[in-house]
Write a protein that binds this DNA or RNA. Structure first.
Lengths: 209, 209
DNA sequence: AGTTCAGTGATGCGT
DNA sequence: ACGCATCGCTGAACT
């Protein structure tokens, strides 16, 4: 009865039983079992995208003789190992400490490289630019008087971020200021991407260095 | 430019770009990359259940110098390898040929072991038992006159299977025949499981040997 | 082919 | 804590 915390990958001949919200049994065969440091357990078959069985983060894994048992709340996965074909523990697999990388931090990095990102001569940058619809994350003004209206998201930008940018831009349209709308984030969802395309907004791939 | 078909697992320091329905970039770091024989590509971070990036079955993977590139329709994943920490090719990882294991086949197996599964003395089994609501997959009659009403599903039983069983049982209730309802399948969904619990049906884990 | 719907959906952001 | 919207959903059954 040994608790396992380390992240590892295991390729083995085994049979698997799951009982919880649903139930299932997997016939003896070769499966790929992945265990992450947060307790996540993934059981993959030879094909298809989906896992066959899993536990979400927070599950606890232990070994009992030739069984691997993962439990979480009311859900249990029991793996009956018949033959271990390959076992590997992942060194240095931890979330880089993203802490303290706030949007403000990312914004500073963007300001530093703003000319390169927009490929234009920027003469002024104004964070938290006030509008009646709320403060714009960043406004950059080019030498030709063009206003870049920039919405920044630390994570994946979703539809809400794109519509937020649209609101700001409608204000600048009201005061007849020439603008270009930009959404900047490490990733963008399909919905937000389509919204941007339809409204002529740009997306900039920025990432916390 | 070498096309890769074999299934493998790769743990590497790399950066990754995805462009398709959505877009994203992954900062340089350690990621687990899994490639299946059907083209499926999975990219996992150190925590969480979800993949960070993926390609569904049918994608094509190739290597160009220090890049791994997976393409499918309008979607591309480009992996820039910096350091390979661990690489392993999976031997014997293929879908066992589930040849033509129809529900009828499974039913024959169930009939053979019916006494053991139900833990009762069965004196007669009737496949395709006709009722006004459709044919019951299997009816087993015990020495005490109890009727086991059995609905069989080759794959995961979903809600529809459970309600189907309920319909049959309502008929036997009409003719005042004492019954016990069973759903037999290798897996059962949460909705079907709850339905069974609420109506007092049983679930039997059966699998094609 | 498209369409609909369940899934152990997960995950993040709001209250 | 719970609820809600979003997601490159996937996958299977049915038309």
């Amino acid at each position: 009865m040994i608790r396992i915390d380390r992240p590892f990958s295991l390729y083995a001949t085994c049979s698997i039983e799951y009982e919880g919200r649903a139930k299932s049994t997997l016939t003896p065969g070769n499966y790929l079992i992945i265990h992450k440091g947060d307790g996540t357990l993934l059981i993959h078959g030879a094909s298809k995208f989906n896992v066959l069985n899993y536990q979400p983060p927070g599950a606890i894994l232990r070994r009992e003789h030739d069984h691997l048992i993962s439990t979480r709340k009311n859900e249990t996965i029991k793996i009956h190992l018949q033959q271990i074909i390959h076992y590997y523990e992942f060194p240095d697999w931890s979330n880089k400490i993203d802490i303290t990388m706030t949007e403000k931090h990312l914004r500073l990095q963007i300001i530093e490289n703003i000319g390169m990102i927009l490929n234009d001569a920027i003469i002024e940058t104004i964070p938290e630019f006030a509008t009646p619809y709320g403060p714009v994350d960043l406004v950059a003004i080019s030498s030709t008087g063009l206003y870049y209206i920039i919405e920044i998201k630390r994570n994946k930008a979703a539809l809400a971020g794109a519509t937020q940018l649209g609101r700001y831009l409608s204000y600048f349209r009201e005061i007849e200021q020439e603008t270009q709308g930009w959404l900047m984030s490490p990733a963008i969802s399909s919905g937000a991407l389509e919204y941007c395309r339809k409204h002529g907004f740009h997306w900039g791939s920025v990432r916390h260095a």
